[in-house]
Amino acid sequence: MTPSLPLLAVATLAAGLMSGPAPRVAPVADVVEHVAAPAPKTYWTPERMARAIPIDLLSTVKQVGALTTGVLPPPAQPWTALTARALSHARPVRQAAQVRRAASAARPRTAPAATTSGSQWDAGGSVTRTTGRVFLSMNGVDFVCSASAVRSANRDVVVTAGHCVKDGSGPWAENWTFIPGYQDGRQPYGTFSARRMFVPGPWSRSGDDDHDVGMVAVTSQGGSHLADAVGGQQIGFAPRRGLRTYGFGFPADAPYDGEHLLYCAGVVHGDPQGQTRDQGLRCDLTAGASGGPWLSDFDPATGRGTLTSVSSFKYSNDHGTMYGPYFGAATRDLFRLAERA
């Protein structure tokens, strides 16, 4: 008697050949989501906002690694989150005169430059509306970051750095609030609190700098979406490397005060340390600029471009270069989920 098992296998194979190849199953996006509680309306008082400190470049690569050239100096001791938290309780509220002096020192005297490591943006345009400051809390400490509104299906998406949304494998941000068009304390378009937050899985699991991107769907304001108030920059994925790029943000450490929109501009380059797939931009902006938008194909006359990265980290032995993650397939998956929230 012929065994039945081989016949069953042959029958199954024949059925498979007759029905054609199995349908391809789309991979599940590696994204971690969090439902956020809106910040209480009374939380961000002017005094609390003034005392909030830059979240620091929490994703700073703490060890530069083996350098075969011997050209770069040994790495300096980087800031850490603990340092920032300790300073948060001692940082005084800036006086108005100090703010005015810092703003005057930062103000450029010429038209927007195609190459600059740090100038105040006075040219107006869409970027002054879509870029804003983020105020958030982590572990009971109040911090500031930068971010940008982007065009999205739900008209509510804000793009920033992952460490401005979640501290790597640590806690999610609380009291997360976006203020588009912020300028010298003014809030011309109101405030928008987080309702859902998204970060890539590699950032949530291990603080992977290649994935230091966060996206937040914000609440509407009086029935109006964020895009109704300020519009949004186009977001792009898999851009050609080495593009001319403009990076914007609100640096809040000396010599800046966080009250004005500043920018860097130049051609981005690969990571010379070889530790990330990120690209670098010569940029003197300090902590507080984290999460600010990097725009390629940028038109200074209109203030519009394509968002292809955000300010993420600086190596401890090179404070003159800001690095931003490459917006590839993982960032595209992140955005697709955020714009459906």
Rank of each mutant, 00 (worst) to 15 (best):
R196L: 09
L337F: 05
T60E: 08
T308S: 06
H269Y: 10
T131D: 07
R196D: 12
M138E: 14
G249Y: 09
V230L: 08
S117P: 11
D156E: 14
L334F: 01
A103R: 12
G16T: 10
G258H: 02
A338R: 00
Y182V: 06
A338Q: 00
V216I: 15
Y189C: 12
A15Q: 11
S169A: 15
R101F: 12
A329V: 08
F298V: 01
L295R: 00
S137V: 15
A289V: 00
G185I: 09
S117T: 13
D56M: 13
S59I: 14
H225R: 13
G168E: 06
S311Y: 01
Q233P: 11
P54H: 02
F335V: 00
G266L: 02
A153F: 09
T131M: 08
P293F: 01
G292M: 00
A86H: 10
L13I: 12
K314Y: 00
L87I: 10
I53L: 10
G118M: 04
G249M: 09
S224T: 11
P108V: 15
L72A: 12
V199K: 07
L243A: 10
V199G: 06
D299L: 03
G124P: 05
P251R: 05
T321K: 00
V216S: 05
L243K: 07
W79V: 12
R195P: 07
A37F: 11
W176N: 05
P300K: 03
P171T: 08
R48S: 01
T302I: 05
F313Q: 03
E259M: 13
V267E: 04
K41T: 13
P74V: 13
A113G: 12
Q95R: 15
H34E: 08
T131Q: 10
L17V: 03
V267Y: 00
G190R: 06
G185H: 09
D228W: 04
L285Y: 02
A22L: 13
K314Q: 01
V218N: 02
T45I: 06
P46E: 04
S204T: 06
P112T: 14
S312Y: 04
Y326D: 00
G201Y: 09
M322S: 05
P6G: 03
D212T: 14
I55W: 04
R196N: 12
D56F: 11
L262R: 11
G232Q: 05
Y263R: 04
M18L: 13
A96K: 15
D167A: 15
K314H: 00
P78Q: 04
A22V: 08
V134Y: 10
P78V: 04
V150M: 01
D210R: 11
F192V: 01
